[in-house]
Computed example of a mutant assay.
Amino acid sequence: MNKNLLNRSFIMGIYLAGSIFLSSCQDDDSGSTVTPPKGAYESGVLVVNEGNFQQGNGAISFIDKQNKTVVADVFLTENNRPLGDVVQSVTVNNDKAYVVVNNSNKIEIADANTFKSLGVINNLQLPRYMVVANNKGYVTEWVSFSGNGRVSVIDLATNTLTKTIAVGSLPEKLALVNNKVYVINSGGNTVSVINPTSDAVETTITVDASPNSLVVDANKKLWVLCGGEKNYNPDYSIDENTSKPGSLVRLNPTTNAVEATLTFTSKVLSPDDLVANGAGNKVYYQYGGKVYQQDISATTLTATPFINRNFYGIGVDPADNLIYGADAGGFAAGGKVVRFNPNGAAVDSFTVSVGPSEFVFK
C-alpha cells in the first residue's frame, strides 16, 4: 500500500475517532461538559398503576416534568409485553427498577432509564414492597390472606432468593434506618426490625392497630401511621364502643422506643398514605377523604385539611415539594395524577394508566 495513503488513512481514523468522542461528550455554552442522558426515562416521575384485578393490565407510567408529557405504560412500550396482574410498587436502585407485581407473584427488573427488561424474579407469594440494604433486596410477602407473612431476601447480584424471614401478619411497607430494616405488619399491631447483617428479626416493636405506612423524618425518627381497630355490628356498621381510633406514632430507631402517639378522634375513619416532604420536616396523610399536612415538631394532630380531596394514593416530590394525588377514578379507564403546589393549590393534571396508587421521583 502507498505509504502516503496509509498515513492519510491513519490520520483520518484519528480524526473520526476524535469526532465520535467529542460528539459523545460535548461542551455546553458555559464550557462545562454535558453528560449524555442515560435514557428517555432518566429524570421524571414513575407512577405505579395497579390495573384491574386479574386482568393483567398493571403498568408503570412516566411523567416528564419538564415537557409535561406522559408515557402511560413504559414497560409495555419498551418490551412489547405487559407487566402483569396488580402492579404494587417499584423500587429504583443502581439504575435498575424493581417492579413488584403482586398477583403475578413476581418482580420484573428493568433498566430504570430505558425500561428495557433485565430479568424476572419468580416464585414469590403475594409480594408487596421492597427496600435495598447491603446490596440485598428485602421484599414483604403476605404469603396468604391469613396468618403471618414473611420478608424474602434477594441477592441483587444474581437476582436469586437466598432466605425468608418470618414476620407478622400482612407485612407491608419497609424503611431503612441506621442500617436496620423496619417492616410494618398491617394485620396486627407490630413493627419487625430486621438486621441486614444477620438477616434475622432483631426485635419487634408494638404500636397501635393496623399500621399501614411509615416514613423517616429529618431527625432520623420513624413515623408509623396506624389505621386503628374496627369491630363491626351484625348489620356491618362499625361498633364504636369496641373499636379503637387510628394514630400517628413516632419511634426512636436508636432505642426502638415509642416516643409519641398522636391519636385521631374518630373510631370510624382510618388514616392512611403517610408520606414526607423532601426536607423531612413535614408529613402528609389522608384522613376522612382529605389530605392533611403535619409538622414533625407538632405535639397534636392538625385539625385543618391541607387539600379537600380524596385520592387513591399521594406523594411529595423532594425536588420541588409539589404534592401528587393519584385519582383512580373507579378503575374504569385511565386514572389521573393531580399536582398541587406547596400551599395546597392545584397546578395541573395528567392522564396515566388504570389505578394509579404510588409515585417514585427520579
Rank of each mutant, 00 (worst) to 15 (best):
I63A: 03
V70R: 00
Y182Q: 04
N219I: 03
D295S: 12
T162D: 03
N148C: 00
V92R: 07
K136N: 08
A260M: 08
T304L: 07
L262Y: 14
S19K: 09
N189E: 15
N67L: 07
S30R: 15
E240K: 04
D317S: 10
G335Q: 08
Y129Q: 12
A298D: 15
I165K: 02
F264D: 01
L170F: 12
V183M: 03
G84V: 06
N233E: 03
Y182S: 05
V268H: 01
S19C: 13
V283C: 06
T304W: 09
E42T: 06
T203Y: 06
T242E: 12
E202H: 03
D111W: 05
V354N: 08
A276G: 12
E141G: 00
G334K: 06
S186W: 04
N321F: 08
V291R: 07
K163W: 08
Q286S: 05
V167L: 03
I323W: 09
N308M: 04
K362D: 01
N105G: 05
E202R: 00
V224Y: 13
K282H: 15
L83N: 05
I11H: 09
N79F: 02
A72M: 13
F75H: 06
T91Q: 12
G137H: 03
V139T: 09
S24W: 11
L214S: 13
D317W: 07
V360F: 12
D27C: 12
L274E: 14
N7Q: 14
I205K: 06
A257C: 05
A326P: 02
N321Y: 08
G18K: 06
V360M: 05
T91G: 06
S349N: 08
L222Q: 06
I109G: 04
G325V: 02
S353F: 09
I238T: 09
L174D: 01
Q293C: 02
Y236C: 07
T204Q: 10
R150H: 08
M130W: 11
G137I: 01
E259Y: 01
K116T: 13
V48H: 07
V120E: 14
P171D: 15
Q294W: 02
T242D: 14
L46R: 01
V268T: 08
E358W: 15
S237V: 04
F331G: 09
S266Q: 04
V183S: 00
T242V: 10
L46P: 01
N308T: 08
P196A: 03
S213R: 01
Y15L: 15
P305Q: 10
V275T: 10
L170Y: 10
T140D: 11
I307H: 08
D64M: 03
G325R: 11
S61H: 04
D111S: 10
G280D: 14
I296L: 07
L76S: 10
M1F: 13
K116F: 11
P82H: 02
